[in-house]
Amino acid sequence: MKSNLKIVLAGEGGQGVQSIAEILAEAAFAAGKQALYIPSFGVEQRGGVSLAFVQIGEEPVSAPKFATSDMVGVLSSRSVSRVRQYVAPESLLLYDSSLEEEVKKVYGPGQRSVSVPALKLAEEELHPRVFNVIILGVLLSLINFLPLERVKEALERHLGHRFAQDPVLRELNYRALDLGRQYGDVRERR
């Protein structure tokens, strides 16, 4: 994976898309990379598709948004077509396995992609609320140059206050991260 990355993540409000985008960018910054993260924001506070733009590289990032991205993560059904403009033939589309049908319909069978049963894994093995952290884990394994420690530190900065109230939550998040990373190690297909 190249070292100057443009990533778009999309999901429903409440799925935690912005959290994982910020954690990813912050971890990259802590690892000594240049990074920029910007959320999409409009007048719909709730109910719209939530988009996050992340860039990680060696040089200072130029424009905050971009035309097409290297990786596109799709977490919900409505997000599949919402991110169409950011997906180029060479973009890697990462999506939850439950979205298989929609993804095929919008992007055809030839799109470079990774399907992850994150929702299923979260529901069956962990907890639905760590769905996004599984996706973060997959992203990390695909990006492959961000030290896990920096990501864990960023997680702590963002969720530490909740972990303090409920230590089980920390355990859940770390397991979700690991699960995602293991999954991402194997699953790229053409």
Partner: peptide
């Protein structure tokens, strides 16, 4: 953009 984006 400048208000909402995160950078170093």
């Amino acid at each position: 953009y400048q208000s909402k984006m995160y950078e170093p």
